[in-house]
Design a protein around this nucleic acid. Structure first.
Length: 465
DNA sequence: TCAGGATGTGATTGGCCGAT
DNA sequence: ATCGGCCAATCACATCCTGA
């Protein structure tokens, strides 16, 4: 039935118990049409749509089986073992089914999750109506509103840390200050630099993890009282400017000169192996294009801004002595660590900070993740900018500078609405952060007055010997 | 043997668009 | 011009698998 449609590899099909597709024809038809019309990415069709729709289908079939079993005076199990799952298609779903499904799922998952799930389902039924598969949409609606899920919306709130809590989390959690050597991260300066970078720039987890080495200049390349600016493409392909202060550059330099050199050297054989397998993207060299970092590929300079995250994770260049040098700033076994690494690092850091206790332990209701640092950056910057505005209210130039718009640009939000989510938190926090703007990065940095950190220097001196 | 990949799924973010 | 709902995109994390 579907042989003539030219299906892509890995296209998902829902099949009945017996392996046929007769019972879920419309469901499969919907998935095919959605793919053909490029309604969603194939990845998302597999990841969400087929998944949610199939779960609803199972639920509806079970409901029907339950009814039929009662009519026959049998238990559900007995009836199912004889008759199997009823071959009901999704188009047979009733309003009662949806309400029952909602009530069942509500006990199992968060509201936001179910809300997201329902949007997948409602998309199917709207299409089914358009195509004439069903005459009325089983989703209860009032005007344009989907009343199945309305009236229960949760208020979103930003989860952020104070400057002291952030500094403590970076030092004690990510770098492992105060923990014994065995339980410290293997590359503690790398992990610290990563956390500091997120907290001081508001980069997202992945944006920070796949930064390139030449996108952050050495400390010497940063103006004394100023900041270094470069562009980074983020979520939804939206580009924004990232501001790097001297404090951040200093922490990154320390990591570069110690752990990064050692890691790259130690994993040359692994990199060579990757290269043999053709898994690397070998560029000819580094350069700059109109002031922005760039790579040379096939004789052409290409701004790093245009590189995809996949390319960033596997890009290397060959040095004159034959060594393979990854382009990524943060490296593990020669290449940037997988995302799971950063998740685990934060998980370990939470445990460490929890065990240490102390006045700067993050509040219990906040689970610190890379995104928490982004929230923290946003709220701190908002509060700082608003405070600054109050002090200098007479300055006519400042009338042009709206703090919310400024932070919107810094975070790379496409719309101001997203930034407003943070506004409430910033207003209530304003009094507690008098010097937030001026001292943001400075307040986050721990030991750089006497770096390199003695323990790090010691470790790597030993290793060289 | 173990880091890292693959897979599964719950939770959150934020672009977009229509109603007001 | 603004606001809130819709819902795709992304984050987060657990578990199982695999190849060097």
């Amino acid at each position: 039935m579907f042989d003539d449609r030219g299906l892509p590899d890995g296209f998902p099909f829902v099949v009945d118990d017996d392996g046929g597709v007769s019972g879920c024809r419309y469901l499969n038809q919907y998935l095919l049409d959605a793919n053909e019309q490029r309604a969603f990415d194939l990845v998302n069709i597999r990841r969400f749509h087929v998944y949610h729709l199939a779960r609803l289908l199972r639920f509806v079939r079970r409901q029907r089986a339950q009814c039929l079993a009662e009519l026959a005076g049998q238990s559900l199990e007995d009836w199912m073992s004889v008759n199997g799952e009823p071959r009901i298609d999704l188009t047979q779903t009733t309003r009662q089914d949806l309400i029952g499904y909602r009530d069942g799922r509500q006990g199992a998952v968060e509201f936001t999750t179910l809300d997201t799930e329902m949007s997948c389902l409602s998309s199917f039924f709207r299409y089914a109506v358009t195509m004439g598969w069903i005459s009325t949409n089983p989703f209860p609606r009032w005007g344009n509103r989907n009343t199945l899920m309305s009236g229960k919306r949760k208020v979103r709130q930003a989860r952020f840390l104070t400057a002291d809590q952030t500094a403590h989390f970076l030092a004690a959690g990510l770098r492992g200050d105060g923990s014994d050597t065995a339980s410290r991260p293997a590359a503690s300066e790398r992990d610290y630099a990563y956390g500091l970078l997120l907290a001081a720039t508001g980069l997202r987890r992945e944006e920070g993890a796949l930064l390139l080495d030449n996108e952050i200049p050495p400390l010497a390349g940063i103006p004394h009282d100023g900041v270094h600016v470069f562009d980074r493409t983020g979520k939804m392909g939206f580009t924004r400017s990232i501001y790097v202060t001297a404090e951040v550059a200093k922490a990154i330099d320390l990591y570069r000169q110690t752990e990064r050199i050692a890691l790259v050297r130690r994993h040359q054989s692994s990199l060579r192996n990757h290269r043999r397998q053709g898994r690397l993207l070998v560029v000819d060299g580094l350069t700059r294009l109109r002031g922005q970092p760039a790579v040379i590929m096939n004789g052409h300079a290409r701004p790093t801004l245009a590189m995809t995250d996949e390319d960033r994770a596997r890009a290397v260049r060959i040095l004159e002595d034959g060594c393979i040098e990854p382009l990524g700033l943060f490296v593990a076994r020669g290449l940037p660590p997988v995302l799971a690494y950063w998740n685990e690092l934060f998980s370990d850091a939470r445990d460490r900070v929890f065990e240490l206790g102390g006045p700067n332990r993050p509040p219990a209701h906040i689970s610190v993740t890379p995104h928490t640092l982004r929230h923290t950056f946003a709220v701190t910057m908002l509060a700082g900018l608003m405070q600054e505005g109050q002090h200098r209210a007479g300055d006519p130039y400042l009338l042009l500078a709206n703090p919310v718009l400024t932070v919107k640009e810094l975070l790379g939000h496409h719309s101001i609405a997203a930034t407003y989510h943070y506004l409430y938190a910033a207003e209530t926090w304003q009094g507690e952060v008098p010097r937030a703007l001026r001292s943001l990065a400075a307040g986050l940095v721990g030991h750089t007055t006497q770096d390199p950190h003695p323990s790090v220097q010691h470790r790597y001196v030993e290793e060289e010997a």
